[in-house]
Design a protein around this nucleic acid. Structure first.
Lengths: 107, 107
DNA sequence: TCATTATATCTAGATTTTCCGATATGTCAA
DNA sequence: TTGACATATCGGAAAATCTAGATATAATGA
């Protein structure tokens, strides 16, 4: 994780769907009831949701959601873990809380 | 001032120059030494800086800075006061602090 | 090995944003 | 009035972003 780039983060947040995804991932169990269905229970991807589940909820094409998630990851808002054929995305709380302080002090 | 629209705010912040303007206006006396030069001293436009001074510092065309300021005002980040032939822009601290709480609680 | 499933990447047309020069509007002072 | 100055708005070419379909990659299981 390189230094936070506020501009890239703001660009990532400048889209209704991407902003929603970030908010959904605050409470994955609430917004993605089937969460973790594919995971054997000894594996934990805490807070992570797979691309397909996010796509279904976001209601955009598969390529679009994949690109959205990539954009958000490059901005630092999300991180991903691959497990088998699934990629689980979750919030990068460290960056997000840095962003909140940036907001308070710099904006 | 209508309800805050986070997306519009993030769009407004997704530009290096606009973001700088917002930050410059945190400390106008520091970044705009000639601040208020046109104002008779009985008139106070506290924290406000005129378009020309902002343009000079931002180093973009007059029409561009005017549009930037308008964008930021529509997003709620700035407010303007006209005095004679000058328009003074300053931060809308109320909206900005609402935004900071929005950030903490919703993002 | 092969078919299937999940995700990523490539490509491109449509849409939006950027940013300027030109021009309009508004204010002041002579 | 008129001319000079400050700012706003208009119009448009270029650049960036959006979003999807097509295709590639990777993992799984039969």
């Amino acid at each position: 994780m390189r230094g936070m780039e506020p501009i890239d983060i703001f660009k990532a947040l400048s889209n209704e769907t991407r902003l929603s995804i970030l908010q959904w991932l605050k409470e994955p169990e609430k917004h993605f009831p089937k969460q973790g269905a594919h995971l054997p229970k000894e594996v934990s991807v805490k807070g992570g949701v797979c691309v397909g589940d996010i796509q279904e909820k976001a209601n955009v094409s598969q390529s679009t959601v994949s690109q959205y998630l990539n954009t958000m990851q490059k901005a630092g808002l999300l991180e991903s873990v691959r497990y088998g054929q699934w990629t689980y995305y979750r919030r990068n709380e460290e960056v997000i809380s840095k962003l909140a302080s940036y907001f308070k002090t710099e904006i």
